[in-house]
């Protein structure tokens, strides 16, 4: 059953249809928020708030085929609100960064799971150095696999702006990885 059909059923009073929608989307929204904040608690909070808002506002969605973009937009706005509300400074100058927890030692660690977790932490740390507008584009493109057109629609920005943010985001990440000596060594364990 398509999302549009589930929305239609929900509008007729079928709460189970909404739960199907939650079941279908929860993991994606949670993953997006987790990549954004690097925190399970905050990811859960954003996920819950997203679905509460969807529950209350779903009747106002004109084109149900646009649900994907709509729900991602809600989640993104909540992430931005949360960042502003908490006065977080997710992005900091690269010069201010000290050494990362692990750099070249990754390849020599015998426990691959630990290596992967460490690498994941470092990548997440690097991601969190990006400005929010670049970070969300990297997340949507790299981890959600959305097209440039879809991201542009979600963010309500021109496609070229999205591409430009992604380019600067990746370039900045490249600089960070070089600075932390993370490159082919990290990939070699695979």
């Amino acid at each position: 059953m398509t999302d549009a059909k589930l929305i239609e059923n929900f509008r007729k009073g079928d709460t189970a249809a909404f739960n199907r929608l939650v079941e279908r989307w929860q993991q994606r929204i949670h993953r997006l928020a987790y990549r954004y904040f690097a925190s399970h608690d905050e990811a859960m909070e954003i996920t819950q708030k997203t679905f509460i808002r969807v529950y209350h506002k779903l009747n106002t969605l004109d084109d149900t085929e646009q649900f994907n973009a709509w729900i991602y937009r809600i989640a993104n706005n909540l992430c931005l609100d949360e960042t502003k509300r908490a006065g977080r400074r997710r992005s900091s100058p690269m010069e201010a960064l000290g050494k990362p927890p692990v750099a070249k030692g990754l390849a020599s660690n015998p426990d691959r799971q630990v290596e992967k977790n460490e690498l994941g932490s470092i990548l997440q740390l690097a991601l969190n150095q990006l400005p929010p507008e670049q970070r969300i584009v990297v997340i949507m493109k790299e981890y959600e696999g959305l097209k440039f057109r879809e991201i542009a629609e979600i963010l309500e920005e021109p496609e070229n702006t999205v591409k430009s943010r992604l380019y600067y985001g990746l370039t900045k990440l490249r600089q960070l990885f070089n600075q932390w000596n993370i490159e082919s060594e990290a990939l070699r364990y695979e």
């Binding site: 939650v22 987790y34 819950q48 977790n117 990746l170 990885f177």
Partner: peptide, 19 residues
């Protein structure tokens, strides 16, 4: 850089929300 980003493991599955 893309290849490195793809190494990031997925977060744990969140508990199922129910409305």
């Amino acid at each position: 850089t893309r290849s490195l980003l793809q190494q990031m493991p997925d977060p744990d599955t969140p508990p199922q929300l129910l409305v």
